[in-house]
Design a binder for these strands. Structure first.
Length: 293
DNA sequence: GGTAGACCTGGACGC
DNA sequence: GCGTCCAGGTCTACC
């Protein structure tokens, strides 16, 4: 069945889809034509829904292989609106971009929304798995988690959603460490899943939290395995751009852009985007670096 | 509050 | 083919 959704304009489906590397992490999958994506979501009923999400002449079409009841349609609608940030208002950011040549195309190309997973739980686990490893390592670890612990779409088990907190909390640490190859991150992921499953922590409330960004960051940093870089990345997924996800790539880009290739530290990177205030994360992420493909 | 070392893996490199 | 080194963030212990 089809569900048609209207985004706040300006909107570009492919700008969201390729806003960062998430599209390459299971269970996300892009179609061969690069114009639509697939993922699977575990609904509140426990049922697994396969979502094929595509552009529909400026709107968004969600296609599921199975019929959904009214409550499920509402849940899928809410989920996809969140994943693509369809309700985000970036007008103030675009107004700032008009005065910056390196972001002059941001509004025309509708840059600014970042692809999110169906749940913030999934985004937090994936973000922990981006730390202290190569991108290929992250892809391998996420593949392994989905393959080993993900909720199957059907009896074949060929397609699986991202593991639920319940499923991951039942995993044992040696398997996460050695089979899923999470290494030293295994206890972090396990503890986070167990805290979520027990109700000690509800990552989904972060999605629409009224907390000030500083306080929200403090809460996120309480999750073991999440440090400054990961917290800034997660805040950006929540639509809070006050902090920069400073990693080795950021150091390299800022060094090349403003410091003639000389090594730079976090203070220099922060200083480079200080004037962007609450938009600094977005300005940094969508900046047209000299070696941007 | 700041810093050093450990954590784990894959890739690059030299032999 | 094997061994060594290094990059990639976060945590913990220590000063």
């Amino acid at each position: 069945m089809d569900i048609l959704l209207q985004p706040r304009q300006p909107f570009s489906f492919t700008s969201v889809m390729y806003s960062h590397g998430w599209i390459r992490l299971a269970p996300f999958r892009e179609d061969d034509d690069g114009a639509s994506l697939h993922t699977l979501a575990v609904l509140r009923s426990g049922r697994v829904a396969d979502l094929h999400v595509s552009d529909a002449a400026g709107d968004v079409r969600v296609t599921t292989s199975a019929a959904l009841d009214d409550a499920e349609i509402e849940e899928v609608t809410e989920t996809v609106r969140w994943m693509l940030g369809l309700d985000q208002d970036l007008a103030a950011f675009y107004a700032r971009c008009q005065h910056e040549p390196k972001l002059a195309n941001a509004e025309r190309e509708a840059k600014g929304r970042m692809l999110r997973s169906p749940t913030f739980f999934e985004d937090i686990v994936k973000t922990i798995l981006t730390t202290n490893t190569s991108w290929s390592g992250t892809i391998r670890m996420v593949d392994a988690l989905v393959g080993e612990y993900g909720e199957p779409l059907d009896e074949s088990g060929e397609r699986r959603a991202f593991p639920t907190p319940a499923s991951l909390s039942r995993a044992n640490e040696p398997d996460l460490r050695n089979v899923a190859k999470l290494g030293y991150r295994a206890p972090y992921v396990l503890e986070f899943a167990q805290r979520t499953e027990s109700g000690d922590l509800d990552p989904e409330v972060f999605k629409h939290s009224d907390l000030a960004t500083l306080e929200l960051r403090k809460r996120i940093l309480e999750i073991k395995g999440v440090g400054g870089y990961a917290a800034a990345s997660l805040l950006m997924l929540l639509g809070r751009y006050d902090y920069l996800p400073v990693d080795s790539w950021a150091r390299k880009m800022v060094s090349q852009e403003w410091y003639d290739g000389q090594p730079v530290g976090e203070p220099e990177i922060q200083a480079a985007f200080e004037s962007w205030d609450e938009w600094k994360g977005l300005a940094y992420w969508f900046w047209e670096w000299d070696d941007t493909p």
